[in-house]
Amino acid sequence: MASQGTKRSYEQMETDGERQNATEIRASVGKMIGGIGRFYIQMCTELKLSDYEGRLIQNSLTIERMVLSAFDERRNKYLEEHPSAGKDPKKTGGPIYRRVNGKWMRELILYDKEEIRRIWRQANNGDDATAGLTHMMIWHSNLNDATYQRTRALVRTGMDPRMCSLMQGSTLPRRSGAAGAAVKGVGTMVMELVRMIKRGINDRNFWRGENGRKTRIAYERMCNILKGKFQTAAQKAMMDQVRESRNPGNAEFEDLTFLARSALILRGSVAHKSCLPACVYGPAVASGYDFEREGYSLVGIDPFRLLQNSQVYSLIRPNENPAHKSQLVWMACHSAAFEDLRVLSFIKGTKVLPRGKLSTRGVQIASNENMETMESSTLELRSRYWAIRTRSGGNTNQQRASAGQISIQPTFSVQRNLPFDRTTIMAAFNGNTEGRTSDMRTEIIRMMESARPEDVSFQGRGVFELSDEKAASPIVPSFDMSNEGSYFFGDNAEEYDN
């Protein structure tokens, strides 16, 4: 783990906690998980779902989305002020799938948001429990990260689609708070800032007046979040320049895209947490497990152990491969979309394939898809080993990566060399080191050039047997250095459309 220093740990961010010791953190995270579980059980009762239907990941996603929508204050306010045809701002819903006479049927349900809020609060001892809501947002974000390569979004903001390893959390809503900021990748933060800068260039009043003052505060806050992700002084200094700019424009845009590229080699610290679907927490609570009393951590053995003992089902389209669908969801559960496939294969105990080789589309089923041909199958979400999630980018030494994705962002704290394609990355730096950030740029390029592919990161860190909950005997895996390590390699994943 990167030293926490003055930073709060993510469990504290996750639970809005002030400084807590490890036991208190485990208890408050457990409380959050228990609340999600209780809410899910109650919703299944309301909807009269069978046990099997309640364990269907598509039903879980609909129920999670309903509660997130019920608590989305800004959108609710907007919907009330701008009524649109056929949208009731006070209601929320989605597809629920039921097994009827041996076939899967889709039923569109509609609930009062007020009623959903009441059920959620009741499951969370009367609190709004925003930490639990954020947790579900991060699960949705991790699922998107594993399912889609955001080529269009990258290109629109002047970045290269091969930089997708920097895009963790790119679909997280803005209201996801400190826990959300911690899991956002460098590219995601750059993209958010670039969008602001572009608006400022096109709209003279963007930075002016009372609204402009708020915009400015948001801009500086985002700059500080991004600065905190960088691990070298030169990158941090460049972020200070971007933040202090009187009138952010093209120079800042250039600096930010430069920094994003540099992060492929001088990786930023991005938190990883295993956020599971509500249909995993519900049955665990129903079986009598007391998360608050037992304590829970999002970055240790607990999620692995929970998945070892969970039964989750998914709808499967006619030509999809259930094992591939399982891999997709497994990666999402562990926030591992940008991790090295060699490491993932070792931990999972079966070969993890790149996205383009998977015969599976996303987990969600569109409303126009034919239910007649839908089957369902068990998702295999178990693992051979477990490993500690990392909050750091690993040290800054790398190795060759593949054509589709030119770097990785480690999820697990496991000893290995970190793949990246130096030639491709360095070719993108057209040696432009003039301007006010020239000395920093020169320094950053120097550090990137001296990074050695064969150097090892996370020295001495290994994986653990599932029986080793105290992480007492690390097993340090050895990897084939020459092997392909990137998930979005030469990829044809669908595009994420909101």
Rank of each mutant, 00 (worst) to 15 (best):
S274G: 15
D51E: 13
C223S: 12
R204M: 06
G212W: 07
E484D: 09
L328R: 00
S28M: 14
M137A: 02
R19I: 01
I225G: 14
S69A: 15
L259H: 02
S84R: 12
N76R: 01
A22R: 07
L110I: 15
E107Y: 09
T92P: 07
I408R: 00
T411D: 09
I347C: 11
G158W: 03
R342I: 08
G435A: 12
G209S: 08
S376C: 15
D240N: 11
L379N: 01
A131V: 13
L276C: 15
L306Y: 04
N142P: 07
V29D: 09
M239H: 00
S3M: 00
K7E: 10
N211M: 07
T373W: 01
D468C: 07
E80H: 04
F346V: 03
M105Q: 11
E449R: 06
A284I: 03
M136I: 15
V183K: 01
F71R: 07
D491P: 01
R400F: 00
P173A: 14
D51S: 08
R65K: 14
A278T: 11
Y313A: 02
G394C: 07
F291G: 14
I109P: 00
S50T: 11
K227E: 12
I57D: 04
R38P: 04
W104S: 09
S165G: 08
E81H: 11
S438T: 13
V280T: 15
K236G: 05
M163K: 04
L381A: 02
N211R: 04
A123H: 08
L259A: 04
K90E: 11
Q231N: 01
P474F: 09
L110M: 08
S84P: 00
R150T: 12
I96D: 04
I197Y: 10
N224S: 15
T171D: 06
W120A: 02
V186D: 11
K236D: 05
P173N: 02
R55E: 08
S359Y: 12
V280Q: 01
D302P: 15
F479G: 00
R422L: 09
K77A: 15
F479P: 02
A237Y: 07
S141C: 15
G17L: 07
T15N: 11
S269E: 08
L328Y: 04
Y385K: 07
Y52D: 01
G126M: 12
S84M: 11
I365H: 11
C279P: 02
D455Y: 15
S376F: 05
K236Y: 04
R150Q: 04
T15C: 15
N211T: 13
R74M: 11
S287R: 15
K348H: 14
L226P: 10
E192F: 06
R199K: 06
L381F: 02
P248K: 04
L466A: 14
D128H: 14
E11V: 06
R216V: 02
N125I: 14
H334Q: 15
R156F: 05
F346H: 09
K77M: 12
F412S: 13
I109F: 12
F338T: 04
L79H: 12
V414C: 12
A22W: 12
E369C: 07
I109R: 02
Y385C: 12
A271Y: 00
G5D: 07
M371P: 15
T423G: 02
K357E: 05
R175Y: 02
E244C: 05
N59V: 02
D480M: 08
F230M: 08
N142K: 13
M331N: 06
Y296N: 14
G268E: 09
T411Q: 03
T437E: 02
P354M: 08
E252H: 02
S165E: 02
I36D: 04
V155L: 05
S9H: 15
S367T: 14
N483V: 02
F39E: 01
M331Y: 00
S50L: 07
E73R: 11
E292M: 06
H324V: 04
I445Q: 03
E443F: 08
A251E: 03
Q20C: 14
P453A: 14
F253C: 07
H324S: 12
G431F: 08
G209Q: 03
